[in-house]
Nucleic acid binder design. Sequence first.
RNA 1: GCCGGGGUGGCCUAGUUGGUUAGGGCGCUGCACUCAUAAUGCAGAGGUCACGGGUCCGAACCCCGUCCCCGGCACCA
Length: 543
Amino acid sequence: MRIPIEKPVLVTSALPYVNGECHIGHLRTYVPADIYVRMLRKMGYDVIFIGGSDTHGTPIVLSAEAQGITPEEVVEKYHKHFKRTFQALSVNFDYYGRTDSESNHRRTTEIVKKLIENGYVHKEETKQAFCSTCGRFLPDRYVEGKCPYCGAVARGDECDQGCGKHLEPGEIIEPKCKICGNEADFKQQEHFFFKLSSFADFLISYLDKLGGTRNARNYALEWTKKELRDWCITRALEWGVKFPGRDDLVVYVWVDAPIGYISSTEELLGGRGGGGEDEWMKYWKGNKATIVHFIGTDIIYHHCIFWPAMLKGAGYSLPDAVVASGMVKINGGTFSKSRGNVVWVKEFLERFHPDTLRYYLVAQSSHTKELNFSWDSFSMRVNNELVAILGNLVHRVISFAYKNFGVVPEGNIDEDVFAAIARTKEEETRAVDEYEFKKLVDSAMKLADFGNSFFQREEPWHLIKKGDAGRERCGEIVKNVLQLIKAVCIGLEAVMPAKMEEVWSQLGMESDVHSVKLDEMMTPIQSGQPLKKPKRLFDRVEL
RNA sequence: GCCGGGGUGGCCUAGUUGGUUAGGGCGCUGCACUCAUAAUGCAGAGGUCACGGGUCCGAACCCCGUCCCCGGCACCA
């Protein structure tokens, strides 16, 4: 689906939970989001790109305790880490915020109050596991015991290894705290619930029109067919956004996390432009903008069910599209830190150029499908595609041209060449509309292939030795292939911004490759423009 | 169990409304080329599209049944 060109666009990328380092699984969402934003800008859209760190919740509190530091310090450490990682990978957010910011606390409080005012929140007494050794209430994932039905080991609210039954609070036998290993018991506690059940009809019609990838919509629609249970939106915890009027409760992280999209927009636009402090409302009130969320398939529920219901209940604009990327596997297995089945981005970048990773992440599989990372497939992509097809084309042609002409030679661009470029431009545009980033790179690489084939067929290295006429025809061939390189470069800038900047410079282009529009693929390269001495683009990967 | 996504030559994979010899990549074989990072180009071998039935002039694609793989099943970031 093509989004309307007249409206401003807000693209967000899921907020990383900052209690550990960035691994390549995270990037499956951030890199395509960045590529999408770059492509939209090339296509003439007015876009802002928002991201941020998710900073609240029990895991961060526990992580802090384990390290003997405060939650603030944990958050600070990994927030910086993620921010630096994104910079290193050219994932250029217009604003990268955090959910523990003053403005997010304020916006979350405002929205929760609005939900209460509108009658969407109610109080309930529930049983909650409590560990007296740790002195805290335990979320389900930290409770372990026996299933009352089959006797198997059960966790929290589900008998996950036995009969699979859902367990009501208090049902589990011999509950233990997974943090300290001691016995836990259940206490009565007052909690607040969001009336998700009253949004069922709204969600069905909303999801029906929701753009983005099919997997997100299908999953979410499936849930709406079942009974929607009300959400418990409070936790007995210190670290978080206080529930209005209650000092002992904070809101559940999935309330304040997505609100981070709004508060980050506020922080970005707060003091900007003629719109004054309310500039952000253009994006979040009255459906005046297009909102696109990039997420992983693991959080579809929160973005397609819970979040739109909250926005609707509090009177905010609704997301127009949710783009969900498939999960990353490593060597065919699930991600596991303990088993060492993990690839850390930091270590990756010590060995390889960030653009090779950006390329791999989108070239390896279609966006909504699972991506199975292996070093073998990585080296194959780099050596057979980036080195052999793209790097080689750029290097052989610019080397030849630089040596024999020094500038872009005179000559006309062939019809065939323009036709191939036009076709590529169309394919690339369609790929963006469909959120098929693999098709984007495949299409650009096909054009590079065409360039190699064209150069080979015309044998300019023979022509150059055949007098003035030969030299003239040779120049024309070279100009044609330089035109192809220029077009390939524009399309691939979104995928490999740093590397394409190098190519752009070798071509002797004066403009900024990052702000060039897609239409320029068809603009003839200027004859007489001085070429730069070429350097290799990519090194072969030897494992 | 329920729901979703898959099962296409040795391997990975395209094929969105059914239509001429099922595309591409890796690997493999042969030839050509030397501008280029032993990179490139051209040609070739290799598939009963999981299995069984059905609809149709015609099905990888639609319907029914069977088998196998993966993921989700809610308060877990």
